[in-house]
Design a protein around this nucleic acid. Structure first.
Length: 924
RNA sequence: GCGGAUGUGGCGAAAUUGGUAGACGCACUAGACUUAGGAUCUAGCGCCGCGAGGCAUGGGGGUUCGAGUCCCUCCAUCCGCACCA
């Protein structure tokens, strides 16, 4: 005698799975593999809320389903445990971030285990664990020891580069390097000092130290990467960010720009995410060319995508930060220009970005020469030109570019049309027109004009066709404590890697987690933060790695997380290859997902892994928003009026904890106990209830709308939580958490439970043979469940199970032949109850060892369908027709029918359309 | 401004290639039962209409025997990028 006691059942099976290591995955060459991965969480102090598990539930369903289908499934979980919040907390409280992190992780793990995920906890990893970050540091070292060879289009060892320098200098080298990299002969190289050589190599290394313009956040005391800055403010904390030049480590991700772009084609990712990466990489085809400055030994390099409009150039514009400005400005213009630059600098980055309307600039007094027609054109400084893109200088064609047009108009500069078309106010003949007024380009269509202009440039050696990317190299250092130390020491001002045997370079203890008095990063406080070598003791790097370092390769480490000798065993990695299905939020589109692809390509180039892309297929689950509830206090009183009656009063809305509201009805007792001042609150009720208002907002403590999964589990059980999160709507959609309707799935589980029990609640299944009707119900469900999983429509799958159970309940079906496969197909969604029912039916093994029931279409065939027959699309009558008839037979049968005959009144139909299984339509 | 997505009952949402729109669930209504429960079962539930019937998938137009689905256009909401030369 037992009701559906989810508390007992769930505890029992979670303990069972843990004890028997049910989900431990080992490579097995006889089985096809499937690797399902979730984006691992940062363990924050707030714990999991109900939105976090959404993606994990989806991946868990897939992992269990694949397993039932006979795949060897890898489904791990771990923690991205380096990060700012733990450090901020440490600054406030003095508690070591490692301790805070440990506590948070324990809480997360407990919460995750309560939901009953099929994670292989043996594979758990933490990025802040020295045994893990040893290999993050090791990859950094590989990057430092590599350069990008253009000929072979891959990363190679710096040793090979040095070899080439020794024998032939830069002549034979085609490698990606900084713009200001010098050329030299073999002889020169061999005569360079150690320091000079190291300095040159830094121009080639895939991770390098260089003076870079960075996003500096003073409040956080650290630099931020482009994807951590939103509209001039830090993504975390919302502090102002300024541009600043600093010595920083960078990752030469730009070397991989083209491959990162091309690789997208082969990935099974959502189009929006791919598009976001394409925009971020920002490839544009064009030309780079040099303008000589009249009367001076100076050149201005510009990048343009419209070299075909070269005859329409009427001025050049330089970014205020461009170093040439100082050289070009004439004495008469000196004051004007320096004033302008000063104003431009004082305008914050943010202002400059938002305020795109204001047109400003200053004339330098110098002129450049257009090499195509020897025309002299003025050189201006303008802040609409960005220092960070292209060359920081543009050739302006006011007739065919809106910004150039506005600028020319504002300052009265010449506007010269060179593309045929209608030139009216605000209209710019653009792509596709024929070139006019343009010397040897006149009369050519755009593409041909571009080609011949580029040939001209290349002949004269003043320019070339060029591909420009918007993406910048990624800054790789943070002036923070709670991150991976860089395995680098400095000798003679030059960075050197520490010896591999000294890995991991463990994060040192510090007295405070703040910068030192003279502004060095927190590691400057560590005692003896030096590196001992045979020839002396040298200072170690004080910065640490950014948050994305550890998360850029963790998917490989899961395969072999305890390996002390390699980042991952080769054979093991060859077996699991890459992630088959990756589930996570779309907010990482340009950060984590791009960096991971970059590192994977690098590891591939250096022969460390056998795949070039880490995530074959990706699904982006939508965020679950909060749904806040409100009560309405009548002004100046302690009386609250129900939502629909509030119009009659002057009220102020007040957030109320959503955990004391059920279906928008407030629990008055709980409300009175909530806060002291509410103890004597009075209410104006509607129909005896207090109804709350509601609004969708972000989940946050201050809005009292956080729903903790533990509470839902306590009330309804983990299986209900899992089913309900899936039932809520399509996985990829953003949606508010709303418990209206959770009773529906809970009811479903109770009904399911009852199917396997008799009226006295004793387990009872019969061995009777199932009826065709019962078989049909079951096989409909099997088929639907399989189809829905293929396109990740978990929500309709849950509905489908409900229909199946309703039908079986109506049929009073308690037959083993139906109930066994039913438990199996439901088990990925509601694993605990399925296990329990499975064992009640006498199985000794876990349900995860079962196999997915085969769908048999034979059971779905009905003998007779009701076919609607319509005339010109209007449905008139339903006729019983056999499904086994051919299209022609159905047609004939419909036409012979008496009623149809009467409608036709002797008219001959134009055509008769038979839509299989749906309708017979007679067109007159 | 550019790019992407979405728009269906009171609510969450379904709807293979265009083929009986609103499955399933919530809420609601009526009834049954009962150890009175946040329980279970039965029936109803898009809108207008007593009814036959008519109207309905953001608005308008088009293709088609037939459009939520395809095409054009407009509107609204959300997301991403944003002076990228």
């Amino acid at each position: 005698m037992a009701d559906y006691n989810f508390r007992e059942i769930e505890k029992k099976w979670q303990a069972y799975w843990e004890k028997s290591q049910t989900f431990n995955a080992q490579p097995d060459p006889n089985k096809a593999k499937f690797y399902v991965l979730d984006m691992f969480p940062y363990p924050s102090g707030a714990g999991l809320h109900v939105g976090h598990p959404l993606g994990y539930i989806a991946s868990d369903i897939v992992s269990r389903f694949k397993r039932l289908q006979g795949y060897n499934v890898l489904h791990p979980m771990g923690y991205d445990s380096f990060g700012l919040p733990a450090e901020q907390y440490a600054i406030q409280t003095g508690q070591h971030p490692a301790l805070t992190t440990e506590e948070n992780i324990n809480r997360y793990t407990q919460q995750l285990k309560n939901i009953g995920f099929a994670f292989d906890w043996e594979k758990e990893l933490r990025t802040s664990d020295p045994s893990y970050y040893k290999w993050t540091q090791w990859i950094f070292m590989q990057l430092f020891d590599s350069y990008y060879d253009k000929k072979e289009d891959k990363a190679k060892s710096v040793d090979e580069l040095i070899e080439a320098f020794k024998t032939s200098g830069t002549a034979s080298v085609q490698a990606i390097c900084d713009d200001d990299t010098p050329s030299f002969s073999a002889e020169e190289w061999n005569n360079f000092s150690e320091k000079q050589q190291q300095e040159i190599l830094l121009h080639y290394r895939l991770t390098y130290l260089a003076e870079t313009t960075v996003n500096w956040c003073a409040e956080l005391g650290t630099v931020l990467s482009n994807d951590e800055v939103k509209d001039g403010f830090s993504e975390r904390g919302g502090h102002p960010v300024v541009r600043k030049k600093m010595m920083q480590w960078s990752m030469r991700i730009t070397a991989y720009a083209e491959r990162l772009l091309q690789g997208l084609e082969k990935l099974d990712w959502s189009e929006p995410i791919k598009e976001m990466q394409r925009n971020w990489i920002g490839k544009s085809l064009g030309a780079e060319m040099v303008f000589k400055v009249k009367g001076q030994d100076a050149h201005i390099k510009v990048f343009t995508t419209r070299i075909d409009t070269i005859y329409g150039v009427t001025y050049l514009a330089l970014a205020p930060e461009n170093e040439l400005v100082e050289q070009l400005v004439t004495s008469e213009q000196e004051n004007t220009v320096s004033d302008y630059i000063q104003t431009a600098k004082n305008r914050s980055e943010r202002e400059r970005m938002t305020d795109v309307k204001t047109i400003s600039g200053a004339f330098t007094g110098s002129y450049a020469v257009n090499p195509f027609n020897q025309e002299e054109i003025p050189i201006w400084v303008a802040d609409y030109v960005l220092a960070g893109y292209g060359t920081g200088a543009v050739m302006a064609v006011p007739a065919h570019d809106e910004r150039d047009y506005n600028f020319a108009k504002h300052f009265g500069l010449e506007i010269r049309q060179v593309i045929e078309g209608n030139m009216e106010e605000g209209s710019f003949p653009g792509k596709g027109g024929t070139i006019m007024n343009s010397g040897f380009l006149t009369g050519l269509p755009m593409q041909e004009a571009m080609n011949s202009a580029i040939s001209f440039l290349e002949e004269k050696q003043i320019g070339k066709g060029k591909i420009q990317y918007r993406m910048r190299d990624a800054i790789f250092t943070r002036q923070r404590y709670w991150g991976e130390p860089l395995p680098v020491y400095f000798k003679d001002g030059m960075p050197y890697l520490i010896d591999k045997k000294d890995l991991p370079l463990v994060l040192p203890e510090v007295d405070k987690y703040l910068p030192t008095e003279d502004g060095a990063p927190p590691l400057g406080r560590a005692k003896n933060w030096n590196y001992k070598t045979a020839d002396g003791e040298y200072p170690l790097e004080l910065s640490t790695m950014p948050g994305w370092a550890g998360s850029s390769w963790y998917f490989f480490r899961y395969m072999d997380p305890k390996n002390a000798d390699e980042l991952v065993d080769k054979d093991i990695q060859n077996y699991w290859e890459a992630v088959d299905l990756y589930i996570g939020g779309s907010e990482h589109a340009t950060g984590h997902l791009l960096y991971s692809r970059f590192w994977t390509k690098f590891l591939y180039d250096r022969g460390l892994v056998n795949v070039e892309e880490p995530f074959k297929k990706m699904i982006n689950q939508g965020m679950i928003q909060g749904r806040s509830n409100f009560v309405y206090r009548i002004k100046g009183t302690n009386q609250f009026v129900s939502y629909h009656l509030k119009g009659a009063h002057e009220t102020t809305a007040m957030h109320v904890d959503v955990n004391m509201v059920y279906n928008d009805q407030l629990d008055l007792d709980q409300f009175r106990k909530w806060r002291n001042d509410l103890a004597d609150a009075t209410f104006i009720l509607e129909e005896g209830k207090y109804i709350c208002g509601a609004e969708v907002e972000k989940m946050s403590k201050s809005k009292y709308n956080i729903v903790n999964p533990d509470d839902v589990i306590e009330r309804y059980g983990a299986d209900t939580l899992r089913l309900y999160e899936m039932f809520l709507g399509p996985l990829e959609q953003f949606k508010p958490w709303n418990t209206n309707g959770i009773d529906g799935v809970f009811k479903f589980l109770k009904k399911l439970w009852r199917l396997y029990h008799d009226q006295d609640a004793n387990p009872s299944v019969s061995d009777e043979a199932p009826s065709p009707e019962e078989l049909k119900t079951l096989h409909k469900a099997i088929k639907k469940a399989e189809e829905d999983l293929k396109d990740y429509s978990f929500n309709t799958s849950v509905s489908n199970f409900m229909i199946c159970v309703n039908e079986l309940t109506a049929l009073k079906c308690n037959k083993r032949a139906i109930l066994e496969p039913l438990a199996v197909i439901i088990s990925p969604y509601a694993p605990h109850i399925a296990e329990e029912l499975w064992s009640l039916m006498g199985h000794k093994q876990s349900i995860v060892e079962a196999s997915y029931p085969a769908f048999n279409p034979a059971f779905l065939v009905e003998d007779v369908h009701e076919y609607p027959v319509s005339i010109n699309g209007k449905v008139r009558v339903k006729l019983p027709l056999s499904v086994s008839l051919s299209k022609e037979e159905i047609e004939a049968l419909a036409m012979e029918n008496e009623i149809v005959q009467r409608w036709l009144e002797g008219k001959t139909p134009k055509k008769v359309i038979v839509v299989p299984k749906k309708i017979v339509n007679i067109v007159l």
